[in-house]
Design a protein around this nucleic acid. Sequence first.
DNA 1: ATGAAAGCGCTAACAA
DNA 2: TTGTTAGCGCTTTCAT
Lengths: 358, 358
Amino acid sequence: MSRNGLTRQVTINDVARTAGVSRAAVSKVIRDASGVSASMRERVLAAIEELGYRPSLAARALRGSSYRIGLEIPHLDARFMSLIADGAKGALVGTPYELVLAVADGPEYSAIEALVDGLVDGIIAVAPLVDGDWLETLASRLPIVMLGRHDSPENYDTVVGEDDVGARAVMSHLLSLGHRRIAHVTESEAVTAPGIGTPHAVRLQTYLDCMLEAGHQELVSVVRRSPGTYGWRASTARLLAGSEPPTAVFAGHDDIAFDVLAAVADSEHAPDKVAVVGYDNTPLAAHPLISLSSVDQSGLEMGAQAAAMLLERIAGRTEPRHHVVTPTLQVRASSRPADLMDASRPNARARERTAKTG
Amino acid sequence: MSRNGLTRQVTINDVARTAGVSRAAVSKVIRDASGVSASMRERVLAAIEELGYRPSLAARALRGSSYRIGLEIPHLDARFMSLIADGAKGALVGTPYELVLAVADGPEYSAIEALVDGLVDGIIAVAPLVDGDWLETLASRLPIVMLGRHDSPENYDTVVGEDDVGARAVMSHLLSLGHRRIAHVTESEAVTAPGIGTPHAVRLQTYLDCMLEAGHQELVSVVRRSPGTYGWRASTARLLAGSEPPTAVFAGHDDIAFDVLAAVADSEHAPDKVAVVGYDNTPLAAHPLISLSSVDQSGLEMGAQAAAMLLERIAGRTEPRHHVVTPTLQVRASSRPADLMDASRPNARARERTAKTG
DNA sequence: ATGAAAGCGCTAACAA
DNA sequence: TTGTTAGCGCTTTCAT
């Protein structure tokens, strides 16, 4: 009756008593340590089975390791985060480590702290805004790998995509298609402020650079989520309804792009008159009804890489490593000119629907 | 230098020493317990601040509670799960509890166990296949709320949607539209086997019942994911390419429905000749390029409800509670007859995009 | 109001 | 090979 009048949990003592051995013996067996005879191992295993014993992580963590890796992500609904989690989880298969997730609501500090207090042997986190010094301090106590940070810290590792390369690929693509009036729809001011080095700040800066280089500086148009709304649909709708709407939109990430596509669909503009490109190459981008051009930076691989690096750190490495992922642009229908689209459509009949309904 | 040559963590002893008080005093302060003078509280708080102290959850959990709620979900990519997590997280705001997630790869046992060992005060889980007796045993040691189980256990609570009601709504809708050749695309055999009482088994059974009641028993057509593939697109494509393809598809959940829509778009069938209805009313279903009819069972509310019930259990309740959610069908363009679609489409041109496959 | 001390379940020296 | 023992950081009586 340990809590709430519930049944007491089975402890290592119960197993030891049942098997007629010492606690240390049980501990050795469950840790696969050396110095256990076959017969003893057998008896202990039998007792464990019989009692349904599972070692308490709290006790274990108190002594040494918890065999848990914490992954902190902002928003669960961002599909890119799912990819990262899947990748990390995959990299942990075959190791004694389990992945636990913490979702940050606001500033990622609290979520990371929840993980730190919470018995993990190491942390992978997506937290672009968290203070670097704070992280350095934290990292001096716990192995840490950060995703999507462009800094070069001493105490933790990073895995980051070349956001400038990716953004430039988008802009080159759109410019080469003849677009001049290209808008950029992105995240809130907080994560895109100049010079803060977040992925979205870099993408925005690259957008601005490219527009300048192309001589389109007066056509620059940056849109952020409308305060008080849940997405970018309303902001984009306003943009499209303006007097000089863009002919192309570079969206900060795919979820933004989906909202942009929705706004275009809602608008008076013919869908194929507004090119849209996203970022992250989320699975849904490949859906034929969406068919969104997007920059692929392999979230799966990034997650796996981060987990592998964290494991190295847990194993003892202390020199920082910084893994860079080179993104590639995946072009799909959302940014193909209409005539090209016609030629590339695998199914001409799909258009019948248009004829009937439009 | 506790691990990996890293800096030792700040403990309650450090705080006590710095503040010049006993450990017990510090403990009282951080727990807001009674019996602390204002001056002592102040000194302790100052020391905590100065040292950046955070109590070790491992140690706390060993003695009492960890203030962590574990949520186990199968697949992170299922959008419905995100809704549940969001709902649960929301319900925990303002409480001292934090939510941690564990994603199950295969049989949910291991993920749940990872959470149990792992220092949570209670568990919310989506685990339709886990053995009821096993859960009862587990629940006698730890507060548990299960989602999507149609059983009526004694030791744990449940939050479940009326899958028969939802499925019947779908079928009535499709039948009233005049469809006779209605296919059901669903999950693997494992989770849809007759009589196992999982949501998907109930939906399938209801589908069969409705087809029978409508006198269409020979037109029954059930499709599952092709082994070795990642989705339902290939299976559905085969179905559509058959000699007598369905005119309507009832998909087991929205993610399946998206695959079905993709297969339809890929096929020789005009999109509006194949009605598609999903389940869960995932946010993307409302996207104008998707516009998927779907059964809404409010994952947000289910998650919040589950968290609230778990909190009650942690607070001491032992009588089981079983919360039932009544689903409602949300009709959208994917299952409207063409003429109706014309009348209701806000922007005729929006549909043009469906022509783009890429 | 404050502190001393006994554990929670486990691991890791060390002793036998 | 096996068992004994000393904590890990914290909470919680129980004295003071």
